[in-house]
Amino acid sequence: MPRRSSLPVTFIVPTLVILLILSMVPTLYAIIIALQNRELSSTAYSYVWFSNFYDLFFDRRFLNAVWVSVKWEFVTVIATMVVAIGLGVLMFEAASPRMRNVYCLLFIIPVLLPRVSAAFVWKFAYHPLYGIATYPYRLITGGLIFDPLSKPATALFAVASVDVWQWGLFFAVIVLKLLETLPPQPIEAARLDHAKRWQIHAYVTLPMLKAPLVSLMFVKMIESLRSFDLIYVMTRGGPGVATETLDMYAFSQGFIESGKVSYASAMAVLMMIATVITFTMLWKRVQA
């Protein structure tokens, strides 16, 4: 590589400046708005400093939204990883190379769909009377009605299943590709020691893949923060507040119910601080 060239500077400086502007301006503005009392209905506003944040801690709907978001994060991340590792190992063990290619192609399809499409597809499928996913239940029980999206106990899981349908299948492909990159010798050695197939994976291959699997989980944790589209289309946060995550509540406070933009922004700022701190710490850990 030549030592003296203007390339590194001319190539990276404009891009970084633009990225910094595009990201810092909204971030700083979000904080400023959160310290004011702006509403959609009027143009007048003044600084109220931390009173929005103070109010949040006594808002039971906000506390519920925090709890729903945490639940959502855990359910989707764990279920995605279980599905991904399970199907990945199964493809590695039970599918011929040709079938692996077919499955890989099929399993990528759901994640490519817009979340709005995926949400619609399953909203139709979960319809209690005419849905294709509830049809087996109607058939077995002789026409009893099961409506997963309108029961508080099942709604969150019904929506989460769509998320897992998209990401779990996609990650299964990645787990398979990771397994294929492993050297065959340790697996052979374990087989010579009469290890059972599940033991080979539990004690040899998956521990060898620990680092990439942890990174994969990290990616899923970030993507799980983007639950809004699914919930907006499928339940709108309902029934009641059973599936109202933080972004859904912030959106409805800011734009549907009361137009309290500053209040919504205070929520978003708290969310931003929590995720940036958590993920920065996790990322440093993953890298170390």
Partner: peptide, 20 residues
């Protein structure tokens, strides 16, 4: 820094941008 842009919750970016 490039990766951390992905941590920003979309709603936190969208509210101020709407005002801007």
């Amino acid at each position: 820094f490039v990766l951390s842009l992905r941590f920003l919750p979309p709603v936190a970016v969208a509210i101020p941008l709407m005002v801007i």
